[in-house]
């Protein structure tokens, strides 16, 4: 059931420059949510603007957590939110990642793509093996994970998160790759992981969030699929990357 309601802010923090973490009281136990699912959220000061699609970071005790990267006015507004405020929310939306039970999993996130993979990592006891790589610009964007890659070398390995994916897949006999991040990173991942089952969580400009406006279409198979309704998680090899 998709609801549109005002969710009370329980906690706000700035875990890194350009990021804000929100914990919202869902007012009821949240069941059947999967990593990769998202909400359309709007800060109080953004009345009259479109919602922003934000991936769920965590669900616990009837609360939803989100880690939001500040990229424009709509996301900047979340940094001004205070505990006790109401955030407009439409959701839960989207399909979510497939299960990792008994699998040998490689989780790969880049920048703002961190939340769904961090959630999966917390459930990694279900997997036979699980390794989470996170890549970002600098030490400022580092969040808890197994291996970190920074473009400027200020933390972890210097380079891109995709650099050692190929060898890690072989070394750890990976049979499932799940990734989320900027499109150039995902396209690179799709190229590297052609022989392994690989799912990506996509982001797109979005309006309605529920499959009505057809604004968030991406090229999949021989047509277009909607990130909000058919995704955001897609099999990587079905996306026509060269058209993105």
């Amino acid at each position: 059931m998709i609801t549109r309601e005002l969710l009370k802010v329980v906690d706000v923090s700035i875990p890194a420059p350009q990021y804000v973490k929100l914990k919202l009281d869902a007012g009821k136990p949240m069941e059947n949510l999967l990593p990769g699912m998202f909400y359309e959220l709007r800060a109080p000061s953004q009345a009259g603007r479109l919602f922003k699609p934000i991936s769920i970071l965590d669900v616990e005790d009837g609360c939803l957590s989100f880690l939001i990267k500040v990229v424009g006015a709509g996301t900047q507004a979340f940094t001004q939110v205070k505990a006790g405020d109401g955030v407009e929310a439409l959701g839960p939306l989207g399909n979510g990642f497939p299960g990792i039970e008994g699998r040998r999993v490689l989780l790969v996130s880049g920048g703002a793509g961190y939340p769904p993979l961090a959630w999966l990592k917390r459930e990694s006891h279900q997997a036979e093996f699980c390794l989470h790589l996170h890549g970002c610009a600098s030490a400022d964007e580092v969040f808890p994970c197994d291996l970190i890659y920074t473009a400027d070398g200020s933390r972890g390995s210097k380079g891109l998160v995709t650099d050692s994916v190929e060898s890690l897949i072989i070394e750890h006999k990976i049979d499932l790759v799940l990734s989320c991040g900027p499109i150039p990173m995902l396209a690179k991942m799709a190229d590297i992981c052609k022989q392994v089952e690989h799912y990506v969580s996509m982001e797109a400009y979005m309006a309605c969030g529920i499959g009505v406006c057809h604004g968030c279409a991406i090229p999949v198979d021989q047509s277009y699929k909607l990130v909000c309704k058919d995704g955001p998680v897609f099999e990587a090899n079905r996306i026509r990357w060269s058209e993105l």
Partner: peptide
Amino acid sequence: AGNPSPRLCETECGLLN
């Protein structure tokens, strides 16, 4: 099939599609 993405852009005072 529709047009290639991106298909949307929110502007100062409205929406482009």
